[in-house]
Computed example of a mutant assay.
Amino acid sequence: MPRFKHYNYDQDAMVVINYQEQLQPGTFEHAVHYLIEHKLDLSVFLPKYRNDDTGCTTYDPAILLKIILFAYSKGITSSREIQWCCETNIIFKALSCDTVPHFTTLAKFVSHHADEIEELFEQVLLVCHEQGLLGNELFAIDGCKMSSNAAKEWSGTFKELGEKREKLRRLVRHHLKAHHERDEAETEAELDRDIRQAKTILSLDESLKKVDRFLKTEKTGTDLFNGL
C-alpha cells in the first residue's frame, strides 16, 4: 500500500505572505484591485466624511469597494459574511490589505452610497468584460469568456457596449438591493433574538423571585413548626 504525506485542510498555519502577490495578473480580483486603486476617481465618496481634523480614522472607500464587488462576484450579499471572509479568506485579505471592516461599516457604506457604488461598479465590470474576466463570475453576461485575442481589443460597437452596460447595471443594482435587504433581515433577526433573550431573562428573574419567596416562606413555616 503506497504511503503518502499527511495533509489536513482544517489546520491553521502562520504563513508570511505578500498581499499584492496574491492578486495574480489576469484574474478578476487583480483587475478590481488595479482599477479601483489606481485608475478610477473615488472623490465622489469623500464629501460625506467629516473626520479631516478630528474623529477616528475610517476605512478607505477603495478597500470597501474592492471587497464588496469581489463578494458580489461570488454571490455573497451579506455584510456579516463579507466581514467573515475578510477574517478567513486569503483573497479577501489581500483586497482589504488584511483589514476587517465591521459588518455595520459595510452595511452603512452600501446604504449611504448605493448610487455612487452602482456607477463605479459598472465601469469596473465593463472593463473586466472586455478583458474576458467575467466568464467564471456571477456577473458574466455572455455565458463564456472571450478569447485571449479578442480580449486585447475593445469588441463590438458602442451600441453593443451600451447593451452590455445596461445588463451589468441591472446585475449591480440587483446585488446592491439584495445586500441591503439581507442586512435589514439579519438586523431584524438580531433584534428578534435580543428581544427573545430579554424576555427570557425577565421570565427567569420572575421565576427566581417566585421560587425565592416560596423557599423563604417554606423556611419560615418550617422554623415556626420546629419552634413549637
Score class of each variant (00 low, 15 high):
P2N: 11
P2V: 14
K5H: 11
H6E: 12
Y9D: 07
D10H: 15
D12R: 14
D12G: 10
D12N: 09
V16T: 10
V16R: 12
L23I: 06
Q24D: 13
Q24W: 09
G26R: 03
E29S: 09
E29D: 08
A31Y: 01
A31E: 06
L35E: 02
L35T: 07
H38M: 13
L40E: 05
D41I: 02
L42V: 01
K48S: 15
R50D: 01
N51F: 05
D53G: 14
G55P: 02
C56R: 13
A62F: 05
L64H: 00
K66F: 04
I68M: 02
F70L: 00
Y72I: 08
S73P: 02
K74C: 05
G75P: 01
I76W: 03
S78K: 05
R80P: 08
R80D: 09
Q83F: 07
W84D: 12
C85V: 12
C86Q: 01
T88R: 06
N89Q: 13
I91T: 02
A94E: 04
A94Y: 02
L95P: 03
L95R: 01
S96V: 00
T104R: 09
T105F: 06
A107N: 02
A107K: 02
S111N: 10
H112P: 02
H113P: 04
H113F: 12
E116C: 08
E116V: 07
E116N: 03
L120F: 08
L120M: 07
E122F: 14
E122D: 11
L125E: 02
L125V: 03
V127K: 05
H129N: 10
Q131C: 15
N136A: 11
E137K: 12
A140L: 06
I141W: 06
K145L: 08
M146K: 12
A151D: 04
A151K: 03
A151E: 08
A151W: 05
K152S: 12
G156E: 01
T157C: 04
F158S: 12
L161F: 14
R169N: 09
R170T: 08
H174T: 15
H175L: 11
A178F: 11
H180I: 10
H180C: 06
E181N: 14
R182S: 08
A185F: 07
E186V: 01
E188K: 06
E190M: 11
L191Y: 15
D192W: 13
D192K: 09
I195T: 05
L202C: 09
S203D: 12
E206W: 10
S207P: 02
S207C: 13
K209W: 04
V211M: 11
V211Y: 15
R213V: 13
F214M: 13
K216W: 15
T217W: 14
E218K: 08
T220I: 09
D223A: 09
G227S: 15
L228C: 09
